[in-house]
Write a protein that binds this DNA or RNA. Sequence first.
DNA 1: CTGCTTTGTTGATATAAATCAACACCGGCA
DNA 2: TGCCGGTGTTGATTTATATCAACAAAGCAG
Lengths: 230, 230
Amino acid sequence: MANLNSNGCVDCRKRSDMFKNLNPGELEHVDMCRVKMHYNVGEMIFKQGSPCYDFVCVTSGLVKLYVENGSDRRLIIGFAKPVDYIFVPGAYVDKRHHFSAMACEETTACLVEAEIIQGLIKTKPDFSYQSISKISAQAINLFEQLTNLTQKQMPGRMADMLINLSTKVYESNPFFTHLSRQDFADLSGMTKESAIRVLKIFKDDGLIKIEGDLIHILDMPRLEGISRNG
Amino acid sequence: MANLNSNGCVDCRKRSDMFKNLNPGELEHVDMCRVKMHYNVGEMIFKQGSPCYDFVCVTSGLVKLYVENGSDRRLIIGFAKPVDYIFVPGAYVDKRHHFSAMACEETTACLVEAEIIQGLIKTKPDFSYQSISKISAQAINLFEQLTNLTQKQMPGRMADMLINLSTKVYESNPFFTHLSRQDFADLSGMTKESAIRVLKIFKDDGLIKIEGDLIHILDMPRLEGISRNG
DNA sequence: CTGCTTTGTTGATATAAATCAACACCGGCA
DNA sequence: TGCCGGTGTTGATTTATATCAACAAAGCAG
């Protein structure tokens, strides 16, 4: 991994699109305030409610982003994968994290001081326009999640979740995943038991096939139908 | 109303904070591409799925923002009131609206060509930083709505909704509202019948008092407790 | 290897919430 | 005036989903 960015941000082959219009001087500035981190599976990158000092750019692995209630329930609102820069809205509001980030696979990430990024937004119009575009796309995703989770029942929510995993997160079918049944439940707003039951129905109906960590979507059109019709 | 901005944006007393750091020349540019509109109760300002050409700044009245499924259910994701500039994330992604906006009271609004606003974002770092701050606050609201709607049951959702109406939307207690029971239901993710039942329980328990369009919150601490504990 | 913890699975039961149905109330309108 | 469509209200019933309980399977530590 080290050789991929041995010369820092300037030559980093895993650089996020976000930084493509910065000049070498600006990149070096980012580079100087950058810390490279490694996280094991299950390790927390930041926790909801904690102060935010750094912005996180995922360079390898997979990170789940989730909100938690006071109670024991969680809701996964998205994933960050290489090369995603995790947008932290709290940085612009109250300097607190409003969701938690945890590594679901072995993950490496670069941390950059929030001040640096915010400085770029204030001075580089191009950079800030790109930021707004990214945030906008995330907001649209949140709208979709809201309708999905509140206006569909379990099979619809699960179908939608599986389609998203295959097309957006892992971008393959079949796909390998280390997500637990609890994660599946936290993604589709139900209990672990219910998630297992719905998956079983899908398996029995020939919609999907599960072989350990490998999930095949066998009948995408029908799964899309279930997602649409709730 | 007309006298409030007879000289256009430059002297408009209802001007959004967003525009406070623009110089007169820039304001005049905005002014030239501005259309003043009036909407009656129930009239749609824009509809989910339609192309977006203009940005909307509400100068009087109240606007509800909601997402709709293919089915007949809606979910109100927020309100815009004077002087709110409605952020349209689709403008930065696919030039489509991803939620609908409808007047819940007699409403006036200024429409400004999206290009003009996007031009400002590209040229005025200050303006774009403010935009990002606003969008961030909205995103945080969406997170709260997500946990609220998916991890609480009906009394908790309704309590949260009432507190929000009183503290954020109408900013008074008691507050007058022209929202229907269906709107209450669409705000708290339940059916109209369920909304009525929960409100009745709250009334019987002495938490609130409803006199026509006037709603009193009588026991805020207890309502907050219900909101927290689901 | 053995015990132990975590994760996955299944069935029985309880309960939250939607649906269905009926009707009261009100405002506009013929 | 009386009809009529929308809104509000209530009760009975059904259904979706959580909860509870028991156990199997898999990883891990001693």
